[in-house]
C-alpha cells in the first residue's frame, strides 16, 4: 500500500476525529484529540501496519493554552512510511492515555515525558522518573525551569545546586569573522 492509500483509509475511518492534517516535504502530520489516541493508535498498528513507534516527544508551549503537545512518530516497516500524530493536552488535565500496551517501547518514552514535563500517562505499568531520581521536585524541560537548575536536597539520595552561568549561555553568532566575534560571551537578550 502506498502512503496515499494508507492515509486515505485513516482519513476515511477517523475523518471527523482528525483535527488537522498537514504535509511538509513528504512528511504527513495528523493532529488528533487526546481522547481518540488509543483508538487511532490501535487502528494504525493493526490495520495500517504502523508497527514501529519511532519516538514520543513532548513540547511545552509556555503561555499558550493548551500548554503541552505530545508528538508520536510512527513508522510502517512493510511500507516504509512515516506518520506523525500530534495531540495537545492542557496543564490542568495533565494526563494522557498510554500507548505502552500497543507499542511496548512507549514505556520508557512516556516515563521520560513524565520526568521532564510532568505529563502523566493513564494506564502506564510503571510511571516513575527515568533520568532524574524519584523524589526530585521539579520538571526540568518545562519552559519555566531555568537552565542552571534549582536547588534541591534529598539527604543520602541526591542534591542539586544552581550552576554558576558566568555570563553564559555561550552561544555562537553566525558570521565569518574571527572566533572572538563569532562567540561573544553571552547572547544579548534582544537577539
Amino acid at each position: 500500500m502506498s502512503c496515499d492509500k494508507l492515509f486515505g483509509s485513516l482519513g476515511k475511518s477517523f475523518g471527523e476525529n482528525i483535527q488537522h492534517q498537514s504535509e511538509f516535504r513528504g512528511e504527513t502530520t495528523y493532529t488528533i484529540s487526546a481522547s481518540d489516541l488509543r483508538e487511532i493508535a490501535k487502528f494504525c498498528r493493526d490495520e495500517l501496519s504502523f508497527d514501529y513507534l519511532l519516538d514520543i516527544t513532548s513540547i511545552d508551549n509556555f503561555g499558550e493554552e493548551p500548554r503541552f503537545e505530545i508528538v508520536y512518530h510512527l513508522y510502517s516497516m512493510p511500507h516504509a512510511v512515516t506518520l506523525r500524530l500530534k495531540l495537545k493536552v492542557s496543564e490542568d488535565v495533565g494526563v494522557v492515555d498510554t500507548v505502552s500496551d500497543i507499542w511496548p517501547t512507549a514505556n520508557w518514552h512516556e516515563r521520560e515525558i513524565y520526568d521532564m514535563m510532568g505529563i502523566k500517562f493513564d494506564g502506564h505499568p510503571d510511571l516513575r522518573r527515568i533520568l532524574m531520581w524519584d523524589g526530585y521536585p521539579f520538571f526540568p524541560l518545562r519552559k519555566d525551569f531555568p537552565l542552571e537548575g534549582l536547588p534541591s536536597e534529598m539527604p543520602d539520595v541526591a542534591f542539586t545546586k544552581v550552576t554558576p552561568m558566568e555570563g553564559g549561555p555561550f552561544v555562537t553568532v553566525p558570521s565569518s569573522a574571527t572566533s572572538k566575534d563569532r562567540e561573544p560571551r553571552a547572547r544579548p537578550p534582544e537577539l
Binding site: L131, M132, P140, F145, P146, L147, E148, G149, L150, T160, K161, T163, P164, M165, G168, P169
Partner: peptide, 16 residues
C-alpha cells in the same frame, strides 16, 4: 569543573 555541561543535572566539578 563540570565541563561543557552548565546545567541542572551536572555537578560542576567533583571537587565540590
Amino acid at each position: 569543573t563540570g565541563g561543557m555541561y552548565r546545567s541542572y543535572a551536572t555537578l560542576q566539578g567533583i571537587d565540590q
